[in-house]
């Protein structure tokens, strides 16, 4: 089989539930994050308010623009956009129910209706970035971001596009008990929200990391064995290994994976963003904030045991030549 063209990570940005955008601003969550108003941050990052934009669109706008601002060059127009979101516009959709059904007024607000379209965030990402290429919104519960990333990776490998902006976004909602039921969280898990964006390219220059693989494991596959095999296959000699466990993994499973991979350092990124379907995007993008060379592996599973892995090589210094 022919060697596939490598895909590099040129920039990344993670926006946490307190509007935190860099490692120094992260706050460790003891419980659910307090509601955070993004309007001021939108003005500062985007340069203008986004009138009528939903909270989810604001998360996407700030996350994607932060990522693009960290690029050392202007992203070209033919950048493809892939957005993963698990619950999508849950707040706007909930609001529409209260407008349309009794005892509401019976009619939908046109702005809320437009904003409730699941692809609205991806539209704003493209509009603010001036991108006129492929634009996909993937929504597949725990694996929404993983699938967005895999589609992007495959398109880049195939040469369909030379660069792509890939993100994961989700918002939380109230009441808490309803939200926990919607995404089937345990009561002890903080319901988080946030955004994570990666700018990917086939070009080696400016690389801060390399996206090596997005893999799907069938239900019943042993996670520890799959991780060990991945490390054996992709780790460079003397390279550190970091494991980013997803929100569906129970603490006991994480501990077991740690024992199975004694050389791996566990990155407990969920402590700063809370739990949501696309937390993987936050975790991976936030890891890029830290200039520490490692093979980073994100792992999550769904409720019946199917798992997906994201494997990336992260460089210690953006100027380092990869490989």
């Amino acid at each position: 089989m022919a060697e596939r063209t490598p895909v590099y990570i040129h920039a990344a940005a993670a926006l946490g539930p307190h509007g935190d955008a860099v490692a120094a601003e992260r706050v460790r969550l003891a419980t659910d994050p307090a509601p955070f108003e993004l309007k001021e941050l939108v003005k500062r990052v985007v340069g203008a308010p986004l009138r009528q934009a939903s909270h989810l669109v604001e998360l996407a706008a700030v996350g994607s623009q932060l990522c693009l601002k960290r690029l050392p060059y202007a992203a070209p127009e033919n950048t493809a956009v892939y957005v993963g979101t698990g619950l999508a516009e849950v707040r706007k959709t909930g609001a529409l129910f209260h407008q349309v059904f009794p005892p509401g007024p019976g009619m939908a607000s046109p702005f809320d209706f437009i904003n409730a379209a699941n692809n609205m965030a991806a539209f704003y990402v493209a509009k603010l970035g001036n991108f006129r290429a492929r634009n996909l919104t993937v929504t597949q519960e725990e694996f929404s971001f993983e699938w967005a990333l895999k589609l992007a990776l495959d398109d880049l490998h195939a040469g369909s596009f030379r660069q792509a902006l890939v993100g994961g976004i989700d918002e939380n909602s109230q009441p808490r008990a309803t939200h926990l039921r919607r995404i089937r969280l345990r009561d002890d898990q903080p319901m988080g929200e946030g955004a994570g964006f990666l700018y990917l390219s086939r070009e080696r220059s400016h690389a801060r990391g390399q996206l090596l693989a997005v893999r799907r494991l069938p239900a019943g596959a042993g996670l520890a064995d799959a991780l060990a095999a991945t490390v054996r296959e992709l780790r460079h000699a003397d390279e550190d290994v970091e494991l980013l466990p997803g929100f569906r993994l129970e603490p006991v499973e994480v501990a077991a994976l740690g024992r199975a991979l004694p050389q791996a350092r566990i990155d407990p990124y969920l402590e700063t963003c809370g739990c949501f379907h696309t937390a993987a995007a936050f975790g991976l993008a936030a890891r890029l904030d830290k200039p520490r060379r490692a093979l980073a592996i994100h792992v999550n599973r769904d409720l019946v045991g199917r798992a997906m892995l994201i494997v990336a090589r992260i460089e210690s210094d953006p100027t380092t030549t990869l490989l």
Partner: peptide
């Protein structure tokens, strides 16, 4: 693979 696309 199982996935859902939502692009209006």
């Amino acid at each position: 693979p199982v996935l859902t696309l939502s692009t209006a």
